[in-house]
């Protein structure tokens, strides 16, 4: 997207929206048009929160609510839309995490322990240079192992999974829909032999990054190298995969 051009055009639409009187049917149409035009912004911001374990689709919905609020409240005279929308959408996402962090009602004491254990995990990971064991967490925090187990289990159910979740499993789909990824089939097929040629460490990095969606910092911690190295390795691996596929066959 050519930034300045798009910004100018968007700005004009916001002016138009602001000038339309409240009950005007054109207002609804224009508002919808603006929401659609800026969906990518909401989607991108939602993605930043994705690794907290929520379903991306849920986060996109929350971000979209933030986007709609931004469009409704934005005053074009006061400046740039992005400057207003980004904090508004981020605020909506943060509020979502604050209010709905725990999908399952868990006793207060366990919630507090969860915070303690999460902090202990971060501290020990730093100290040990690897993820701690439950026994190490227990010693470090002065808890019994059983308490640590309970807390870890509670943490695992922080988000309940939808009853429909299994419908997404290969054997479970009941409703037909065209898979968005279908046009990627060729690329994936072509990619598989190339992936197999990577070293074990490279495969692990690719897996953590693209299958588990971990951040580079988290990968660095897991693989035991610096974030800079992860970044360099990723670039190098991707270059090699692209070269292997032949640049023109890559969709992106």
């Amino acid at each position: 997207m050519t930034e300045s051009h798009a910004t100018q055009r968007e700005d004009a639409r916001f002016d138009k929206l602001a000038r339309l009187p409240d009950g005007d049917p054109r207002r609804v149409a224009l508002r919808t048009e603006l929401v659609e035009a800026y969906m990518d912004l909401a989607r991108n911001l939602a993605r930043k929160f994705d690794r907290r374990g929520d379903q991306l689709e849920d986060l996109v919905q929350v971000a979209t609510i933030g986007l709609i609020k931004s469009i409704d409240r934005f005053e074009p005279a006061k400046g740039n839309f992005y400057g207003f929308a980004i904090p508004t959408i981020m605020g909506e996402l943060r509020r979502h995490f604050r209010d709905t962090g725990w999908a399952v009602r868990v006793p207060r004491q366990l919630k507090e322990l969860h915070v303690t254990v999460a902090a202990g995990r971060a501290e020990l990971t730093q100290q040990l240079g690897r993820a701690p064991k439950p026994s190490e967490l227990a010693d470090h925090l002065g808890l019994t192992r059983e308490q640590v187990y309970e807390t870890l289990m509670a943490g695992a159910s922080k988000e309940g999974s939808s009853l429909d979740a299994r419908l997404a499993e290969p054997n479970g789909d009941r409703f037909g829909y065209e898979d968005d990824e279908l046009n990627q089939v060729d690329n994936r097929r072509a990619l598989q032999p190339l992936l197999a040629e990577l070293t074990e460490r490279e495969q692990k990095i690719i897996l953590l990054r693209f299958v588990r969606g971990m951040s580079q910092a988290d990968i660095a911690r897991r693989v035991g190298v610096s974030q800079m190295q992860v970044s360099r390795l990723l670039t190098k691996i991707l270059e090699r995969l692209r070269a292997g596929l032949g640049e023109d066959s890559m969709v992106r």
């Binding site: 995990r121 690897r130 993820a131 701690p132 064991k133 439950p134 026994s135 187990y149 870890l152 289990m153 695992a156 999974s161 299994r166 499993e169 290969p170 054997n171 479970g172 897991r222």
Partner: peptide, 27 residues
């Protein structure tokens, strides 16, 4: 042998690994 049952086994496995004192990443 039903996709519905897989989460059960998955949790079972994680619980065993936890009680074996695997580190959290290994779990």
């Amino acid at each position: 042998a039903d996709a519905e049952q897989v989460p059960l086994i998955r949790s079972f496995a994680a619980d065993i690994a936890m009680r074996l004192d695997f580190d959290l990443d290994a779990i």
